[in-house]
Nucleic acid binder design. Sequence first.
DNA 1: CCAAAAGTGTTTCCTTTACACCCATGC
DNA 2: GCATGGGTGTAAAGGAAACACTTTTGG
Lengths: 244, 244
Amino acid sequence: MLENPENTGDYDPKEFPPFAVTVDIVLFTIVNKSLRVLLIQRGAPPFRDAWALPGGFVLPDETLDHAAERELSEETGIRKKQKFLEQLGTYGHPERDPRMRVVTVAHWAIIPNLPEPTGGSDAKYAELVPVSEIESGRIRLAFDHNTILKDAIERARSKLEYSTIATNFCEKEFSISELREVYETVWNTKLDPGNFQRKILQAKDSLIPLNKRTKPGEKGGKPATVYVTGTSKSISPPLTRPKT
Amino acid sequence: MLENPENTGDYDPKEFPPFAVTVDIVLFTIVNKSLRVLLIQRGAPPFRDAWALPGGFVLPDETLDHAAERELSEETGIRKKQKFLEQLGTYGHPERDPRMRVVTVAHWAIIPNLPEPTGGSDAKYAELVPVSEIESGRIRLAFDHNTILKDAIERARSKLEYSTIATNFCEKEFSISELREVYETVWNTKLDPGNFQRKILQAKDSLIPLNKRTKPGEKGGKPATVYVTGTSKSISPPLTRPKT
DNA sequence: CCAAAAGTGTTTCCTTTACACCCATGC
DNA sequence: GCATGGGTGTAAAGGAAACACTTTTGG
């Protein structure tokens, strides 16, 4: 029933099939209450001029996470501590790159308030594209990047429910309503301010209040308590997305 | 801020660093109300005689899922339709294999009632090891397989909550109490039979009743309705693990 | 004063939990 | 009859949703 495993996992390094291993990054940020993802316009075939996810080779002596972090820094110039980066999944269809066999380890990341790359000379090449543009089908990405991005969006939406990653869209210090706005933006929904406040605060050690208030806006309003992220990475009981 | 991406994703195939890409499989099954995982005893260094997860190379023209399925068939001889197989994550630390740079795409799988490989001449090489043995720390696996297995166990436990994969531990036709036993085994807990029945049945289209009853055991009992898996892969609202 | 936003209280409803109880079978 | 396991009923407790209400600011 079970074959002799003598030859399983034991191999001659010379006979392994040649693969290229890359990382691709799905970087989310929120601009103007709109969830956006960093895309790059390709400058060479295949898929010349098409939008693609940023990414690159894994170097011979670095971990996968390190490669992802390095690419992220290279693409955004940001080295902030306060970022979120996690493996998403690996995509390795034999024909996903017409030139050669490439297996890519996709990651997804969150950075708060990424400055829009438009305006500089890079404007033609990199852009923060609204996720709604991709979900509506108006934009077709290179390679299998539509699939990767779709998976990343679902992962992000789902992970807001039971983890505190939403705080990564905010600056280090934030108010509950800023955090609620993140949820509303990513889930594309409206949430009751009172109930949201209670649910997020009852999750132990996830938010730490500071002895500090925000400044109200132009038209007034009660100053809000300022919080920082706590030690707990999970929210229990989870927040749940409204259905449909 | 964002560097020119002309050179991103555009490369000369000759200059890519050489990687070996493998798949490793965490195969779960239940024997005697104990959750077990298929391990193989290595026959060559490194980690000679240590237990390891089954796995092997991804071939030049196959998908990652196909490689996993192929390895699974080769290891178990089973080609059943009724199995579950899913990507778990990718592990690629530069030193995870002392011989060369190997990136492995780990998968996890469920097969019902896998016959124990003990008894044949393979007895020395492959075994269904209770997960409790590994969790207690009594068994140290080769490479980073302890990490992979730990992740797989958590994934399995978590995924029982909101999906119908538990049915993959059962034969094609099963009773609710057989399904409950799966949950109790994987979660290592006791569940209220009445409440379990209601919760699992209120998930629409996840279980389809047949016009059929089980035979009671030796000591009697009411015959149970027989079910098959329905079209829905998700359970909502989810079943939740009892805490602690 | 009013408008606006933060935050709390309260009522209603729904789900979960615990466990009692009935049903169908073997012996 | 009794024991065993399948399945349903139900009352109490707990949590979620909707929304009224209070607080603190700007104008």
